[in-house]
Amino acid sequence: MVYGTSLSSRLLLGTAGYPSPAVLAEAVAASGTDIITVSLRREGPEGAAFRDLLGRAGRRILPNTAGCHTAREAVTTAQMAREVFGTDWIKLEVIGHADTLQPDPFALVEAARILCAEGFRVFPYTTEDLIVGEKLVEAGCEVLMPWGRPSGRAGDWPIPTGSGRCGRIFRACRWWSMPGSARPARRRRRWRWAMTRCW
């Protein structure tokens, strides 16, 4: 159960990087996922077509606040996403470091408090920091999404003892390990690693 919703799959499927809408639709169908993650961007001509594709996919939509660097930006983007996608679920991302994409924990907690108070169901992309996790839970988050590794040039997949510790301590929470971006082969290995540690 996640925010009162029963899920049959642990997999969250991103929608970026597919060569065509048809391939994306096939991937969604083949994955068996219940949740697909999406974004908001400055208007492009494919916006309406993508929304239609999401409708046909028949999966739960999890919009994100990718690209936001302040709590205010993230809150505004979440409010916009709720209107566009018709869901109060939001993957909350507030990036603090441009190279590693490490979340800004202070802005993250601030935004989570605001959004939870507004009735959002917040999925915070966070670090493995236990105190930050506690503050997010206190804010009303029932899910934690600790990062699995830094992105960009910051190095390879570390032994994420901190993420494992999150799972042991926040037993009342659902949590997903986020594998971060990388080349496809490395990303697949990280996904396999992460999926053994979900739930």
Binding site: G14, R41, R42, L54
Partner: peptide, 10 residues
């Protein structure tokens, strides 16, 4: 003014 629309991502 920001005008945002649904896009692939996540």
């Amino acid at each position: 003014v920001e005008v945002l629309s649904p896009m692939q991502g996540g």
